[in-house]
Design a protein around this nucleic acid. Structure first.
Lengths: 215, 215
DNA sequence: AACCACATGATTGGATCCAATTTCAACCCT
DNA sequence: AGGGTTGAAATTGGATCCAATCATGTGGTT
């Protein structure tokens, strides 16, 4: 199963996360198969996986699409993150060593040097997921990864719209998270993380145009 | 894809939830295929789905197994439930009508009449999942369903061990949840639910034998 | 007797083929 | 001209077949 299926799944995941595939886009089995020089079989298996991850919608006899999320759905998914990510950092922090924390500082330095939308999304994602990298409970870390993946498109649209004017808030929050982690204070870190997510969720709520139908 | 794949997935899910397949058990593609009168193909696709759901572990070229969870993993999954289920009831409650709530009363009446382990697990599961049935955000409700599914085996072992002596606590908690829901007080309901899960989690922590290796 | 090499059977992985369903467009009827 | 209908092309669903990999047991060697 796995080698070809994983290749295809990774390819499609990257395409969706990178924005090459957006909400509502159709994914034809044959296209993907040819594109990767494989048969349709691993493509079908990969689509099943991605459907279970929520990155793909699979309608019987009709094919696969990238799902379109409503503002309310994304709002709830951010609320899920507010609940889960503090738990994840509690699990993760004891397992992270100093070098991991210094990597966080590096990433935040890069973020503050300024980057385009794509660059920021990459760095921000790596920053937060590294924060949870020490979490050894599969179900928790994969759930969080999936929430990030499924909302990535809307985060991109939001970053594009909101521009750099409120960037200092993000930076301050990230610095506070890092500091709490160096202090090995997972309660504090969790609070800052939840606040970070909550603020973003509320700002997102002011931009319904992100969820408008595509032209 | 879907019709045969769904049939197989449902069959395997039921087998795992019902206890016919336990942690560590191997799942051979051919066996399942013959058992359901299908080819191996839909079986493979179903296994991919279940792997993404966490109900199956899929090792390349080695086959599929029901994963074995450690006590710590189950503990974290219960903590996830403590965080997510109050959110789910907040989303769900406004969508539930009186008849749903009366169905909760019915289920609790049945629970209090006493049932064997299997019967209680079924009723308890239906009770709680009905509580969240109004939640219209896929990612939230499927995440909760998966947490229930993955931990079902250990819940069964726990119920079997702990016996009926503390049953009155469960009943009291359920009644309080129902009352809060009739009052349309989702904050109260969420608190009772979180407490219910937390108490179970802690009692589970006193029974490490549930997670011991199988003979 | 213990251990390694090898071969054989069992099981999974991948591709091709055929059937079933959907989609879409041309066409006919009113 | 508009709307519904029928047909063909495109696409997905499922089965069989072959290749690759893993597990197991046998035999030989030290």
């Amino acid at each position: 199963m796995t080698v070809a299926t994983q290749r295809v799944a990774t390819h499609l995941r990257d395409a969706i996360l990178g924005g090459a595939l957006g909400p509502g886009d159709r994914v034809r089995q044959e296209d993907v198969a040819q594109q990767l020089g494989a048969s349709r079989l691993p493509v079908r298996e990969a689509l099943q996986m991605l459907a279970a991850e929520g990155l793909i919608e699979n309608e019987p006899n009709k094919g696969a699409r990238v799902p379109r999320l409503s503002m309310h759905e994304v709002d709830v998914m951010y609320r899920m993150r507010e609940q889960l990510e503090p738990l994840a950092v509690t699990e993760s922090l004891p397992q992270l060593d100093e070098s991991d924390l210094y990597r966080l500082v590096e990433l935040q330095d890069e973020i503050e040097q300024g980057a385009d939308v794509h660059g920021f999304l990459e760095l921000d994602r790596e920053f937060h997921l590294l924060t949870y990298a020490g979490c050894r409970t599969e179900q928790l870390s994969t759930t969080i990864h999936r929430l990030w993946n499924s909302t990535q498109h809307y985060r991109r649209a939001f970053v594009r719209i909101s521009g750099p004017s409120r960037m200092w808030v993000v930076n301050a929050e990230h610095r506070l998270i890092i500091d709490a982690m160096f202090r090995r204070d997972e309660v504090d870190a969790g609070r800052f993380i939840a606040g970070h997510i909550r603020r973003t969720r509320i700002e997102l709520g002011h931009h319904p145009e992100v969820f408008g139908a595509k032209p």
